[in-house]
Amino acid sequence: MGAAVTGYFTAFSLILAIGAQNAFVLRQGLLRAHVFAICLFCAVSDAVLIAAGVAGFGAMVEAAPWLPLVMSLGGAAFLIVYGAMRFRAAWVGDYAMVLEGKSMALIPALATCAAFTWLNPHVYLDTLGLVGAVSTGFEPGPQKWVFGIAAICASFTFFFALGYGARLLGPVMQSVATWRRLDAGIGVVMWLIAAKLIWPLI
Rank of each mutant, 00 (worst) to 15 (best):
G2L: 14
G2C: 09
A3F: 05
A4Y: 15
V5W: 14
T10K: 06
L14Q: 03
I15M: 12
I18E: 09
N22D: 08
F24D: 02
F24H: 08
Q28L: 14
Q28Y: 07
H34K: 09
H34R: 11
V35E: 08
F36C: 06
A37F: 11
L40T: 06
C42R: 01
A43R: 00
V44M: 11
V44W: 09
D46H: 12
A47E: 07
A51K: 04
G53C: 07
G56V: 03
G56S: 03
A59S: 14
M60F: 14
P65S: 04
P65Y: 08
W66L: 14
P68G: 05
L69T: 14
V70K: 05
S72F: 02
L73E: 03
L73I: 15
G75V: 03
G75T: 10
G75E: 04
Y82E: 09
M85Q: 13
R86E: 15
R88W: 14
V92C: 02
G93N: 12
G93I: 13
D94F: 08
A96H: 13
V98H: 01
S103P: 03
A105F: 05
L106N: 10
P108L: 08
T112I: 15
T112N: 13
C113Q: 12
C113W: 00
C113G: 07
F116P: 00
W118Q: 02
L119E: 03
L119A: 07
H122A: 11
V123D: 01
Y124N: 03
L125K: 03
D126V: 07
D126M: 12
T127F: 06
G129N: 09
A133G: 00
S135D: 10
T136P: 01
T136C: 10
P140L: 10
P142H: 11
Q143A: 13
V146Y: 05
G148D: 07
G148W: 10
I149Q: 07
A150E: 06
A151C: 04
A151H: 01
I152D: 05
S155V: 06
F156H: 03
T157R: 08
T157P: 06
F160M: 11
L162D: 04
G170S: 12
G170H: 13
P171T: 12
M173T: 07
Q174W: 02
S175L: 03
V176T: 15
A177F: 08
R180C: 09
L182C: 11
L182T: 04
G185W: 07
G185L: 06
I186C: 04
G187C: 12
G187T: 10
V188R: 04
V189W: 07
L192H: 06
I193V: 15
I193P: 00
K196Y: 13
W199Q: 14
